[in-house]
């Protein structure tokens, strides 16, 4: 099912349908994650992949139009690259441990400690939460910082320049002052930005 959806994604040229199919793809993979015992991950994927990112892609499509032009470039070289890479990866899997075997190396390092000790070290039943927030708290803090940084990036790209775009529309090339404002501290920008869309 996932493979069929992925291939359909490849063929479709209507980007609106692509956005919808990407959402379906996420939802299907969430189902797969549930089957693989990763309920927390499935939950996140269903909420994020099928919900938020579909909305974001649709929001972008509303801004840039939803028909893909027919590509003129040849698809032989990409196909060749993909086939070669794929076969090298398949060759690499012959050394990988078999699926679902409890003796795999991944299950014998710290995972048994988490499963056996977390009940009295942390005292909450959901091991994923205790690993996420306590044993691997540094990681999670890093991830939180990353999404915060992504927000700042989006704000700089989309929020800060909006004023310049409007002022260019209003008064032609007189965009000098807002150019300087761009270099300023990002948290200074909201004051200026709120007014154009509030009004």
């Amino acid at each position: 099912m996932l493979a069929v959806t992925a291939l359909a994604l490849l063929k479709l040229r209507n980007l609106f349908a692509v956005a919808m199919l990407a959402g379906i793809y996420s939802l299907l993979s969430a189902g797969l994650f549930t089957a693989l015992d990763a309920v927390d991950v499935a939950f996140t994927e269903a909420a994020v992949g099928a919900g938020i990112s579909t909305i974001l892609v649709l929001g972008t499509l509303a801004l840039v139009g939803h028909e893909q032009k027919k590509s003129t470039r040849s698809s032989v070289i990409p196909l060749l690259v993909v086939l070669v890479t794929g076969s090298i990866l398949v060759y690499g899997t012959f050394d990988m441990p078999p699926y679902g075997d409890p003796g795999n190396p991944a299950h014998h390092h710290v995972a048994p400690h988490y499963l056996e000790e977390s009940a009295h070290e942390i005292g909450i039943p959901n091991v994923v939460t205790s690993v996420l927030a306590s044993y691997r708290g540094y990681d999670t803090m890093g991830e939180t910082t990353v999404i915060f940084t992504a927000m700042v990036g989006v704000l700089l790209l989309m929020g800060g320049v909006r004023k310049r775009a409007t002022s260019e529309m209003a008064s032609g090339p007189a965009s000098g002052p807002s150019d300087q404002e761009l270099d300023g501290e990002p948290h200074q920008q909201p004051d200026g930005e709120e007014d154009p869309d509030g009004g």
Binding site: L56, L155, P196
Partner: peptide, 22 residues
């Protein structure tokens, strides 16, 4: 984590939506 994720998601959505209005 909750506060950050909530803030970031809504902020990003606002950014995309406000573009459309302009």
């Amino acid at each position: 984590v909750f506060t950050t994720v909530f803030g970031v998601m809504v902020a990003i959505f606002y950014m995309f939506a406000a573009r459309r209005q302009v």
